[in-house]
Structure formats: C-alpha cells, structure tokens
Amino acid sequence: MKEKRETILMGVFFLASSALLFVSAMSIPAPNALTKGGDYMPKVMAVFLAVCSLGFLVTGIMKEPDQTGSGKAEAGQEMGKKQWFLFAVELALLFSYLYLLKTVGFLIMTSAYIFVQAWVITVKEERRPVKMAVIAVVSTVIIYLTFVKGFKLLLPAGILG
C-alpha cells in the first residue's frame, strides 16, 4: 500500500513540477513566431516531464496494494522518526558549517565540522572524542596547507584573518 501511494505521489509531484516549469517558461521572452528561442526547450521538457508523471500515476493506480517492487527502500534503510531526526541534525550541521564558514573562517569551522560530523555518523559505542578531535584538527591543517600553499587557493580566513 505504501509503495502504491508513493508512486502516485511521485506522479503528482512530477505533474505539478511540469506545470510549474511550463508556466515559468511562458515568462521567458520568445524571439518571434517563426524562430525558437530560450523558452522552447523548457516547454518541451515540461511536456516530457508531464508524460513521465502520467506514467507514474498510471503504474501507481494499476499497482496491487501488496506488490513489492523497485520503489521500496532496502531493508535497514527505512525512514522512521529517528531517521528523520538524524536527517534534520545532518542538514542543520551542513547548513551551519556553510553559513559560518566565511565569518568564522576555514580552520576553525572545518575542524569543528569534521569533529561533529564524525560524531554524528558513528554509533555510540565507537565514539572516541579525543581521537576524533585530533583527526579533525590534523586533517584540517593538512587540507589547508595542501590547498593554500600547494594549489594557491584562497580559503576564508574569518576571525583568524
């Protein structure tokens, strides 16, 4: 039942996306009636996407409720409440890293990011804070020296600059 609903929802999502794409393409100025301009390809793709979405809708409607198939997540990869929470934590972590990178600077933010990231993706029993902190600082310094000194890239200096 879950997979049937998922397939139908995908169809609805792609249908809405194709409609949005087509409407947005209408606002792109076309050269004239005879020549195709920048609006043509988005309109063509909107039509193709609509056809695909109909495919999802039809297969979703035709699907038996208990049928298993390609859309089902693998065992051990289901998204429960805990997984959605961890997803939000990861998103917040990456968002904070990128948001503060320029202000705080590469060295501090990347060390902090690697430490927290390693913490997040490690099961409780395997967490070793000192080891993780050392790895975070050492790898950040190596990355910094490689890119700044080796490849002459400019990385955000932040509060240390």
Binding site: F106, Y113, L153
Partner: peptide
C-alpha cells in the same frame, strides 16, 4: 568510514569553494 567520510566531504567543499571562490557553489552542492 566515519573518519574518511567527514574529511572527504570537507575536501569536497574546499574544492567547490576554490573553483570560483564563492560560498554560493557550496550551497548548490548542498
């Protein structure tokens, strides 16, 4: 892998940022 993945991702963001020197590309990657 819990050691490798964060370091690799930090490297990825450095590379993405360094290509045009703009955070915008990192947001696109996210």
């Amino acid at each position: 892998r819990y050691v490798l993945l964060p370091v690799v991702l930090a490297l990825c963001f450095v590379g993405t940022y360094g290509a045009n020197n703009r955070i915008f590309d990192c947001w696109v990657a996210l």
